[in-house]
Simulated assay, not measured.
Amino acid sequence: MRKFIIIFGSILGVLFIGVVGYGFYLYNSVTKTVEQIHEPLERPISDKRDKEVNMDDQEPLSILLTGVDSTGDTHSGRSDTIIVLTVNPKEESVKMLSIPRDTRTELIGRGEQDKINHAYAFGGIQMTIDTVENFLNIPIDHYASINMEGFKGLVDALGGVTVDNAFTFEQGGFTFPEGENFMNGEEALAFARMRYEDPRGDFGRNDRQRQVVDAVIQEGAQFSSITKVGSILEAVGGSVRTDLDLNSIWSIQSNYKEARHTVEQMEIKGNNATINGIYYLQVPDEEVVRVSQELREHLELEHSTTASSQ
């Protein structure tokens, strides 16, 4: 009996050392990845807030997601995808708004009207944030930017994602039937980029982008993703940039994770316009105010009736 206890204790000791060792490895890997992707903003908080969001108190916050049309580990180019997330942990809900890349608005820092996705090319994430804040009259508290090539690696690292497709179409050599589709990274990127076969054009494309982002969020939150953490961190490290540091990431994971169960996809509408031979999406002031008020309410901010200059 004593021999059995000694053997059993030894096995438990080995297992404990293994778990602690893996935990230490995991912590170090996460820390190194966060240091690699961390790029703080020039300003500490949005000038559209009186004070910084207190994550420990579960105050609502906003995150700007941009997908940059670049390859490798570069983050230069135009923002192919612009999505605003507002997260209200008390309501356990997320609102997800896609801003069409051809939306005409003032680019803050250049003093001219142009397509909103040009802000990234001219002034990177800082000009993009300033421009989105001005356009929607909301604070952007944090950002995460991913290059589109790296996006494929992230989806593959997660083991793929499942998305419900509204209608059958072909894109990039793939066929996407109507209904539920399980996709690898290359397929997910092709699915998100299609617009010419969609009768809704860029609006339909924006819907698919939000679907894929939501699928990545949901898949990443699954317990099974823990076993894939090495490949996930590798994909993230080479393709993502964010102002969130390790403490902020832990705070979001601890205090905001339940909000992912209710994700509402929003749409901003506009009219086609050709100005000096260039195509734009012109969004009416009243539509900007409508969307702005909905987001401000979700962020528990006062309503505002102002709209940006179009």
Rank of each mutant, 00 (worst) to 15 (best):
I146Y: 00
V236Y: 09
L26V: 09
V291R: 00
S224T: 15
E91D: 15
G220L: 11
R290N: 12
N134L: 02
Q171M: 14
E287V: 03
G172N: 13
S239W: 06
Q171S: 15
Y25S: 06
Q113N: 10
E112F: 07
R290H: 08
I37W: 07
D202F: 00
D198M: 08
M55F: 15
V289N: 04
D57I: 01
E258V: 06
R241E: 15
G109V: 03
Q310F: 12
G270I: 08
P44G: 07
G159D: 09
D214L: 11
V216E: 06
D243W: 00
I11D: 08
Y120W: 12
V53C: 06
K48N: 14
E286Q: 11
R195Q: 01
Q58R: 14
E170R: 12
A144S: 12
E39N: 09
D47R: 13
S62G: 13
Y196E: 05
T33F: 04
F135T: 10
G159C: 07
E302S: 09
M127D: 01
L12S: 12
E149Q: 09
V212T: 05
Q222H: 13
V14I: 15
D69R: 00
D73F: 10
V20K: 11
D164N: 13
F122I: 02
R101F: 00
D243A: 01
T227N: 11
A121C: 00
V84K: 03
R43E: 15
D50T: 13
P177V: 14
V30T: 06
E197S: 14
V30Y: 12
G72A: 08
Q218F: 11
V84Q: 06
L154Y: 00
F174R: 10
I108P: 02
Y280M: 02
Y120F: 15
K48M: 13
A121N: 01
Q253S: 14
Y279N: 11
L85P: 04
K228N: 15
T306F: 02
N28G: 06
L65G: 02
H298S: 03
G72W: 05
F176P: 07
K228C: 10
T274H: 12
F151S: 05
D214E: 15
Q209G: 01
R195K: 09
Y25A: 08
P100S: 06
V84Y: 05
A190T: 07
E219N: 11
V161I: 14
Y25P: 03
I7H: 05
L61W: 03
